[in-house]
Design a protein around this nucleic acid. Structure first.
Lengths: 147, 147
DNA sequence: TATATTTGTATCGTGTTCGATATTATCTTT
DNA sequence: AAAGATAATATCGAACACGATACAAATATA
């Protein structure tokens, strides 16, 4: 290969992409117990933090587009996790609200992140390294998003 | 919200997931010029590094499943980037080989990673931080993969 | 106030991802 | 060598992810 900068191991993009998928795989069995997918899980996290917000506010927090979030929310509505209804003050907005079923999942879901941390603790990864990792990632997120 | 550990900002999974998508978005215009997608780009990286390898070897390097890689390679074959043919020594294996068109893309692609590094240099991100980030991610990858 | 622009959401098509499953080829074991 | 196990690849269905586009509601502007 003529270009070392094209070696997979020299990329920053690839490890981020691979880690993202591996973490999702790690979450999968726990999410299966709740009957939800990973994107549904983070959408619920947004709603557990702030209930009754618009589709647009959810797309902002998840850094996803409407054409991803709208069908996602529709599936969640079908599953009885949320309700969707037009705002009365601004008919353009659709307000998303947790159902009782959606609220009930929170306490079960609360155990999931800890399980990943514990798994990673079995590696040589320290909590400080994880914090530093998260800070670096948010630095990239904030920068790439600010345009 | 009753559980702080469920705050989006307290997750390690979310920043990884978001950064992955943001980096892909950042690459998009450059990849568009080459007429390829991000997964096709990393598949080509594997082939530029080692040509004429089996589908299985590609799935290993990309940490993807056959049911993702097979259709990916088929689309790349349709675009004339690669050829796929059964191995003569082991008829179970399909050997993937770059075409001239696939090989030609390498020099153009070589400029892409540098563009991301330069973009990130405009943030407060130092090269050392990027290296540390990559090391942490590979530590997670190696650990989560070893089971 | 009529028109233009912006905002918020949705639809459509293409391309991933992955679990479950199928199929063929090779290897193991008896 | 025949039967069972394993390996390599492919198919199918469901759920993202996103560019391009559409459309109605709200806002801005002439």
């Amino acid at each position: 290969m003529a270009h070392d900068q094209l070696k997979l191991s020299n990329q920053i993009c690839f490890p981020v992409y691979a880690t993202s998928r591996l973490i999702t795989r790690e979450y999968q069995p726990h999410l299966d117990e709740l009957g939800i997918t990973y994107p549904q899980y983070i959408a619920l996290m947004v709603l557990w933090e702030t209930d009754e917000i618009s589709v647009n506010e959810i797309t902002q927090k998840l850094i996803l587009n409407t054409n991803t979030v709208t069908p996602l929310l529709k599936r969640m509505e079908t599953q009885g996790l949320i309700t969707r209804k037009r705002s009365s003050t601004d008919e353009r907005k659709v307000i998303v609200k947790l159902t009782e079923k959606g609220k009930m999942l929170e306490s079960k879901a609360a155990e999931i992140p800890q399980k990943l941390i514990e798994r990673l603790a079995d590696s040589k990864m320290t909590v400080n390294e994880l914090i530093r990792l998260k800070e670096s990632l948010y630095q990239i997120i904030n920068f790439l998003q600010s345009k």
